[in-house]
């Protein structure tokens, strides 16, 4: 069960009042999350206005050394209303999440690389990311990606057909 309800603090893509909510706990450097990324896009396309997608941070920096700064970069972009653009850029460039690359991605979205660097150095977004992480732990997230469909944990492997079937069942 999802212990932290979706709120305005979340990054929400799609129709805010959609009957279906898909929440992902993800890590930008996790290869499985990278594999799930295009699948989520397909699911969003299939359900259209009927689904809203929420992404929450679940970085494991001791396994993925760039996961923390990548999450901070996405949170930084969110303050400039460009969270999803950055989220997509990060997943499309998972093999290059060095600080210099993150600054380039920021610049490509017309964001200030310098401001990003300051935010990373000042740990501006650390608490938000830790809160996401601990909320996930409390909800039983045990690794990434973990999905919740209308608050219920999705326990199968994340192939398109499986997620599609689970959402279809949940919304029937």
């Amino acid at each position: 069960m999802l212990k932290v309800p979706v709120s305005s603090d979340d990054h929400i893509q799609g129709n805010t009042n959609a009957p279906i909510t898909l929440v992902e706990y993800g890590d930008y450097e996790c290869p499985y999350c990278g594999m799930a990324y295009p699948i989520v896009k397909q699911i969003q396309k299939h359900f259209g206005e009927r689904l809203r997608f929420v992404f929450r941070n679940f970085p494991i920096p001791e396994s993925h050394p760039h996961a923390g700064i990548a999450a901070m970069t996405a949170e930084f972009a969110a303050t400039k209303d460009q969270f999803w653009q950055m989220h997509d850029l990060l997943y499309e460039n998972q093999d290059n999440l060095e600080l210099s690359a993150l600054i380039d991605y920021a610049t490509s979205l017309n964001l200030s690389g310098k401001e990003l660097q300051t935010a990373i150095e000042n740990e501006t977004f650390v608490k938000k990311i830790e809160d996401d992480f601990m909320g996930g732990v409390r909800s039983g997230v045990n690794g990434t990606p973990s999905f919740f469909i209308n608050g219920q944990r999705f326990n199968h492997s994340f192939e398109y057909e499986n997620i599609l079937a689970a959402i279809t069942n949940a919304s029937a």
Partner: peptide, 14 residues
């Protein structure tokens, strides 16, 4: 196990 230990490790501060 790797995932489990990595997760427990990440929750250590808590």
């Amino acid at each position: 196990c790797g995932d489990q230990m990595a997760l427990l490790n990440a929750v250590l501060p808590e």
